[in-house]
């Protein structure tokens, strides 16, 4: 099983499967009349479109790092690293565009120029920041694959069946919600060990609560509308009412929550990696880069480019997601802005 998962083509296939799943879901939702109207409004929203383009750039970079190709000597390398083949590794820190390494006593000439300098291990900072996209996207994507189906399904079930089903589901999420999120995350990760998989699992456990609560409320409102009563009067099964009437009417909330939630997940990844319970050592991660910057800033001369690159890259993605999520919300619900 493990060897199968380690195989590079299986990993590449998984990446594309995940991506086409999300694209397929959005495309199937977009047939809905409400979604089409929202799309028309979104097209006129310039700020929203800019943010969407920003997200697309990050997706592309992350994808290039996720897809791997075999090298001649039996190893493997990501497309992004292959494309940056001309970028050489130095021995230690160097400032952006410097010609010599960062050492007051004995500056050595560098092998090449680096737009954003190099890290402590001599790796190109810009390349590291770009490679960290993959970590952020994997955490956001895998976590969303866990919590979105869970939260939507439980939310609709609780809102539609009410009574003891609702009591049970509300009890479970009120209990989870009463544990401060960061504490729950940290203790789950301490119990399970660090890694991208366990981090997604832990974030999935904490993230579904908000979505479930939202969908439950909206389902309760929708279930009282005449169209649901009519469907029931016509003798449609519960399953049919849930899948073909209720689900399409709450799906836009899921989409908005997905986009806005994604930004929260990216931030959470950075904070958890910073706390030392997140990404395993060696995985390029913005959180780990910011963590390293803590000592770098007190050096003399100050090493600021790692912090700047990681923060800039993280900020760009989170801002794009937040702005795009707001634009989506405006497009779906123009009255409430």
């Amino acid at each position: 099983m493990n060897t199968l998962l380690d195989s590079l083509w299986v990993q590449n296939a998984l990446v594309f499967a995940g991506l086409s799943l999300v694209a397929g879901l959005i495309a199937s939702g977009a047939r809905n009349e409400r979604w089409r109207r929202a799309l028309r409004r979104l097209r006129r929203d310039r700020i929203g479109l800019c943010a969407g383009a920003g997200i697309a750039v990050y997706l592309l970079v992350g994808l290039l790092e996720m897809v791997q190709i075999p090298t001649g000597d039996g190893g493997r390398v990501s497309v992004l690293v292959r494309m940056a083949g001309g970028v050489v590794e130095e021995k230690s820190y160097s400032a952006p565009l410097a010609s010599h390494s960062l050492s007051v006593a004995r500056p050595e000439p560098l092998k090449g120029r680096h737009l954003l300098g190099t890290t402590a291990l001599g790796k190109d900072t810009l390349l590291q920041a770009l490679r960290a996209c993959r970590t952020a996207l994997i955490i956001g994507g895998v976590t969303s694959l866990i919590y979105i189906p869970l939260g939507t399904l439980l939310g609709i079930t609780a809102g539609y069946y009410r009574r003891w089903v609702d009591d049970l589901i509300s009890y479970v999420y009120s209990t989870l919600a009463s544990i401060p999120e960061i504490l729950l995350l940290v203790s789950i990760l301490m119990a399970l060990g660090k890694g991208l998989g366990t981090m997604s699992l832990a974030l999935g456990v904490t993230s579904w609560v908000g979505l479930c609560r939202l969908i439950r409320g909206e389902t309760m409102r929708q279930a009282e509308r005449p169209y649901v009563t009519a469907a029931r009067a016509l003798g449609q099964s519960h399953w049919k009412i849930i899948t073909s009437h209720l689900l399409p009417n709450v799906l836009h909330l899921v989409l908005i929550n997905f986009v806005l939630g994604f930004s929260g997940l990216v931030l959470a990844e950075a904070i958890l990696s910073y706390l030392g319970v997140g990404s395993p050592v060696g995985t390029p991660s913005w959180g780990a880069m910011i963590d390293g910057a803590r000592d770098e800033l007190s050096r003399d001369p100050v090493v600021w480019w790692n912090l700047a690159a990681a923060t800039g890259a993280l900020f760009g993605l989170v801002l794009s997601l937040n702005v795009f999520g707001d634009a989506l919300r405006r497009a779906f619900d123009p009255k409430r802005g």
Binding site: I271, Y274, I290, D291, R294, L307, T311, L319, N322, D326
Partner: peptide
């Protein structure tokens, strides 16, 4: 609104550092 969204897009440790 944009400034508010920008402020919340900065991770807390960056504020501190």
């Amino acid at each position: 609104v944009l400034i508010a969204v920008a402020l919340m897009s900065i991770p807390s440790m960056v504020y501190i550092v």
